[in-house]
């Protein structure tokens, strides 16, 4: 930041965006801490590999698609096409919910295969990491629904509100976070 940024000129948009980025920095540190715990713990003698439930790949496709639909929503909003924005954001929320349901199904599949939270360290990490990630995604879905509601009642004005763009950043971040976690879970240990 340079001297040019001053109170009088600072624009709300920039403030919000920086706030979000800083917040994402905090979330990143949370998962960095989990990762380091994971690496340390994976050196233990009782560490065993875990067959990841195949549905995770389907979930991954869902969340990748959802980033696409949200991009479409964001663009529609920027272009002032509110109806299109509503449908795309609803689609995104649906895909996100599908992802969450799929993750839950993955848990159940593991349970059926006799793998539980307490079974062994890798399974413990699996449930904790997917769970904490899921909570962050729930927040994203709630934000999307709120946007949808605001748009439906005409309280979201293109050109004035930055909320769709902010939500999009957050959503892409949680999507990327999932890819990262998937990589950790399938490649490390």
């Amino acid at each position: 930041m340079t001297a040019a940024v001053s109170g009088a000129m600072a624009d709300r948009r920039q403030v919000n965006r920086l706030g979000l980025l800083v917040g994402l920095g905090g979330i990143t540190m949370l998962f960095a801490a989990f990762t380091s715990a994971y690496i340390v713990r994976s050196g233990g003698a009782d560490w065993v590999a875990l067959e990841l439930p195949p549905i995770l790949w389907l979930n991954t496709v869902l969340i990748a698609l959802s980033s696409g639909t949200l991009e479409a929503a964001r663009r529609a909003f920027r272009a002032g096409r509110l109806a299109s924005f509503r449908s795309w954001s609803a689609a995104t929320a649906a895909l996100g919910t599908g992802f969450l349901a799929g993750q839950y199904a993955g848990w159940l599949q593991l349970n059926e295969a006799g793998v539980f939270l307490q079974s062994h360290p890798k399974s413990s990490f699996f449930f904790v990491l997917t769970g904490v990630h899921g909570v962050h995604l729930v927040a994203g879905v709630i934000a999307l629904l709120a946007l949808f509601g605001l748009a439906a009642t005409g309280r979201l004005v293109p050109g004035r509100s930055d909320a769709p763009a902010l939500t999009a950043i957050y959503w892409h971040f949680t999507g990327g976070l999932w890819l990262y976690l998937l990589a950790v879970l399938s490649l490390l240990g």
């Binding site: 930041m1 001297a3 940024v5 109170g7 009088a8 000129m9 920039q14 403030v15 920086l18």
Partner: peptide, 11 residues
Amino acid sequence: VVTILNLRTKG
């Protein structure tokens, strides 16, 4: 962090 980076007065 955000306040200090973004809301400083002129100068």
